[in-house]
Design a protein around this nucleic acid. Structure first.
Lengths: 346, 346
DNA sequence: CCCGGACCTGGAAGCGGTTGCGCTCTCAAG
DNA sequence: CTTGAGAGCGCAACCGCTTCCAGGTCCGGG
């Protein structure tokens, strides 16, 4: 028994297919009594309209393309979770495009499978080349970028520069003067976090603003993740000049750093303070001070912005389509930061 | 300028729409020279066939529904990553359904938005009621279940009982006799890991098999995640009888347990051994012994099984459609386990 | 009593492809 | 030279729904 079509429902309800469509779609006027009859019939047959056909006829797909470079990393999974929750509740399907490598991205943006498949696009902290951006623009679909502003398009994110600045200032206020920086490096998939440059800049600006010197000997980098943080910290420890505190580009690096320090027998924050950025779920576990961002909320906001564009401005006019939403970050003080050794409050 | 249709391509190439379709679809015979002309024309117009229309006409959507209860948890994100990689390379789109709460699931399975949207379905460790299962069956689509076998359908997973058993045996061989168990509890979303009962059973069977007593005073549970592990361990420490080793239902719990132990000033593995299950990425960082499973590989395998059904047996015959793939687990020995205090090798 | 308008509903034309069927043309065998 | 097999390609019929347009009813007002 094949799936029932709209005609089956129409026949059962004793109306035309047009009326069934109207009753279910809820758009134009149908006599309440008629509508109920149709609804009952549909229910009875457990009829579900073919998204294919309805999309073809109406020009709307009721699906959103969500493009992410990674799905296994904390930041992205939080984002996806926020996005999918909002979209599901609005009746949109989420088509997930997982583009880890540059190769994947290139082939994706040149083939553009998004073309007629979705009503809108959401990219999450995607490192896009000009070509990619162009291809995206050519789609001329409602679009929101999360994690990286895009000229003329709506976006949501945090102030990366300020976030790292807050971390630095916290250390400065504690009295630290030799502040190190742990950065991530692009990994095999040739992808560094898109926010990396800004975070580094945030670090340097804040250090300079505090009247301190930006000392390259106090900076180190490691591959993505905890492992990278561990090795970066190790190289800092092996360096010519020791910091009294370090800020990590993101929490995973800080976690690794903590590990290295513990193994080296150094006390945190006694011998060295550590502060991260993100407020990763593990940060609380290891008592890491950090600058938190609400990633789930960014996903939610991004999705909402997109929905707004979808049933409002038809992509491209002023209004919400260009809004840049900057979400707040918060300094989360935990046990990994303290005044430098030998320093005392006046 | 609206998106080009197949007729635009046809006109440009000087052929009929049918030929364009055949040239791009690659199915039936087209003269190589003609096909090339069509390909060039399509390329020139950057033509992408509407999935809607082609799906409607052909009955295939080139999309797979992936249903997960969570996306932010290690296990699931790894799975999704494996699944999406395979499907993307096979030209399938992934429609992600993120159903965290029982309410979400109920409304999902009763509305069944999957109906005509996808060619196949993949569920990942979903706790399904009989109703859900029935609704899924009624779809009559190629289907693979990851993380929980389903009668008559293909599935992939690990032997949960054996995995925990391996953890227990490891401790037994080390000489432990008072072995505790840390379990997770369902969280707000009313969801406990679907494998929880089997893991517990694995624990109890292995303990019994070792000739030891299953002592309820050596078992504790906490809410999902590290936090839960920490509190579960705490309650064990506060209990009437102390274990010399504990196995945690999954690594996140073990991580929390390690934290509690460290804070309590207990040495691991000196005072107490800890072993987890999963080989979570943080396990390596904190030097946790564990029983590892390759979750990414499970995703890959699941996706492959589904593809096999898609272009082979039309859902429901014998063959691969019912295969139960059990992937291997491996005992990963790290620094969190050792013989019990006061014990020495003969 | 007649007419205009509001309100429902049905008919039918697509939406943009796919594909069965059949026509045309080429070429080798009879 | 005739005939038949194939290969290539076009015609047209859908796929299942949405939506424009027009027709039919029912009312209230003139």
């Amino acid at each position: 028994m094949p799936r029932p079509s709209i005609y089956d429902v129409a026949a059962l309800a004793g109306v035309s297919a047009a009326t069934v469509s109207r009753s279910l779609g809820g758009k134009s006027k149908v006599a309440p009594e008629t509508r109920q009859r149709v609804l009952d019939a549909a229910q009875l047959l457990s009829y579900v309209a073919s998204p294919q056909a309805s999309g073809l006829a109406s020009g709307r797909t009721r699906a959103i393309g969500v493009v992410v470079p990674f799905v296994t990393r904390w930041f992205f999974s939080e984002l996806i979770s926020g996005v999918t929750d909002v979209l599901r509740d609005s009746g949109y399907d989420v088509v997930l495009y997982h583009l880890g490598s540059a190769r994947d991205r290139d082939s994706f943006f040149s083939r553009m499978p998004l073309a007629r498949r979705v009503d809108g696009v959401l990219t999450c902290s995607m490192p896009l080349t000009d070509e990619h951006t162009l291809a995206l623009r050519a789609l001329d679909l409602p679009y929101v970028s999360i994690g990286s502003p895009m000229p003329g398009r709506a976006s949501v994110g945090i102030d990366e520069v300020a976030a790292v600045g807050a971390a630095v200032n916290h250390l400065v206020h504690l009295g630290h003067t030799r502040i190190g920086y742990l950065a991530g490096e692009p990994d095999d998939a040739d992808f560094g976090f898109i926010s990396a440059p800004q975070r580094r800049r945030g670090f340097e600006l804040a250090v300079a603003a505090a009247g301190l010197e930006v000392d390259p000997r106090l900076q180190a980098s490691g591959r993505y993740g905890t492992r990278g943080g561990a090795s970066a910290m190790a190289s800092l420890l092996a360096g010519p000049v020791l910091p009294t505190a370090v800020v990590a580009e993101y929490d995973e690096l800080a976690l690794g750093a903590l590990l290295t320090l513990r193994r080296a027998g150094l006390d945190v924050p006694g011998d060295l303070s550590v502060v991260g950025v993100d407020d990763h779920e593990m940060a609380e576990v290891v008592d890491l001070s950090t600058v938190g961002q609400d990633v789930h909320e960014q996903g939610v906001t991004g999705a909402r912005l997109l929905l707004q564009q979808l049933d409002g401005a038809p992509a491209g006019d002023g209004g919400a389509a260009e809004a840049v939403h900057v979400l707040a970050t918060r300094l989360v003080l935990r046990g990994s930061t303290a005044p430098p050794a030998g320093w005392r409050t006046r």
